[in-house]
């Protein structure tokens, strides 16, 4: 079981959280302007990276806040966590999020 460092509460057991999956690029402002291929690429396309990956997590049984977590998918190491809208900590070896 992981320990997730909630940026608002501090480190807590994984059971308090729900993982929202890989953080993709923002939802297109005008989905109607996209053709089927571009829309479904945003909708379904995920990188599923082997290595550090940015994910959304929800502190469901805690503060109720969604935030971002960098987790290394090779060894489950949680590298950092930060609030939505804040810049990702430097030096995590993160690729650009999303497809």
């Amino acid at each position: 079981m992981l320990v997730i460092p909630c940026p608002f509460c501090g480190p807590r057991e994984e059971v308090e959280f729900a993982c929202g999956g890989e953080a993709g690029p923002p939802r297109p402002a005008d989905p109607g302007a996209l053709d089927d291929a571009a829309w479904t690429a945003w909708l379904w396309g995920r990188v599923n990276r082997k290595g550090p990956q940015v994910e959304t997590w929800w502190h469901q049984a805690g503060c109720g806040r969604w935030f971002l977590v960098a987790r290394d998918t090779r060894d489950d190491r949680v590298l950092a966590a930060w609030p939505i809208g804040a810049p990702a900590p430097a030096g995590l070896g993160l690729a650009e999020p999303g497809p």
Partner: peptide, 13 residues
């Protein structure tokens, strides 16, 4: 509830 919070916080903060 999770759905509402998720959209409010992650997509349209």
């Amino acid at each position: 509830y999770a759905w509402l919070e998720r959209w409010a916080q992650t997509e349209w903060p």
